[in-house]
Design a protein around this nucleic acid. Structure first.
Length: 256
DNA sequence: TAGGCCATCTGGTCCT
DNA sequence: AGGACCAGATGGCCTA
């Protein structure tokens, strides 16, 4: 369903359950052999045992037949009813997984849009991992810098908001609860640009993350000295080519 | 046309 | 016992 929305394909990735139900029933007419996975189908009316059964009836039938001990005694149609119920649950599970995957894609620093091909599942996971690593590393580095600046100057060791402009950089980290109002990173980052935006460096071509983002001081036009604006740690900066082998191949699509 | 990606079905295993 | 989870198999769609 939504997992395929960005593809040109007209095939719904998650057809209506009823459609699947119908199609599977249809399949059952030709036998209950496994591995005949297909989305093609017949009509439920062709199943004598299920003909005229309401959804509730089918559910009740499935539940009644659920006992493994009794399954040997079940008719093919009754077994099919159980199978359909299980299949439906599995579809729902996978659908929920895809919804979660889409949610993850939304908070990734990756170009979103109808003209941009959606990240594959594996690419999404790998990119997310490296994004987390980068953010964690940046946070540590930022803490260290703040500690150096204020820890030794007699100011106060605390984390001062004026350290780096507003110290909010691009605002809440995408994906962070505090950034729930800006689930679309690209839009959000752009919106804060006048203050201390997380801009995409014009010449950067390292990928969705890489070293493509930079902070800029308010009014100064000078790059921010914080870690996110410096060269990322080796294990992070190479994310697109080393830690994301599959993404590397996908980079034809997702990287500049 | 080959390869990538995906949805779905299926049977097995684990967990509550 | 029933549901969740997992992995293999299969087939469809899309792109290079």
């Amino acid at each position: 369903m939504d997992s395929d929305t960005s593809r040109v394909s007209s095939r719904p990735s998650s057809p209506e359950v009823d459609d699947i139900f119908m199609s599977t029933l249809k399949k059952s007419v030709h036998g209950f052999s496994g591995a005949v996975s297909s989305t093609q189908s017949d009509s439920p009316s062709e199943i004598p045992g299920l003909r005229g059964l309401s959804a509730a009836d089918e559910e009740a039938l499935a539940l009644r037949m659920a006992s493994k001990k009794d399954r040997k005694l079940l008719s093919e149609n009754e077994l099919q009813a159980i199978r359909l119920k299980i299949n439906s649950r599995e579809r729902k599970r996978m659908h929920d997984l895809n919804v979660a995957m889409d949610g993850l894609r939304e908070v990734m620093p990756y170009a979103h849009g109808p003209s941009v091909r959606k990240l594959s599942k594996i690419a999404t996971l790998l990119l997310a991992r490296n994004y987390i690593l980068m953010l964690s590393n940046s946070l540590e580095e930022m803490k260290r810098l703040v500690s150096e600046i204020y820890g030794s100057s007699g100011h106060h060791g605390g984390f001062h908001p004026s350290t780096c402009g507003t110290m909010t950089h691009a605002g809440p980290v995408p994906g962070h609860p505090a950034a729930s109002h800006a689930s679309h990173p690209a839009v959000h980052l752009t919106s804060v640009r006048p203050h201390h935006g997380l801009l995409k460096a014009p010449t950067a071509g390292a990928g969705p993350l890489g070293s493509s983002f930079q902070h800029w001081g308010v009014g100064t036009g000078m790059p921010c000295p914080c870690s996110m604006c410096q060269v990322p740690p080796p294990h992070v900066s190479s994310m697109s080519s080393v830690t994301m082998p599959r993404l590397a191949s996908d980079s034809k699509d997702i990287l500049p």
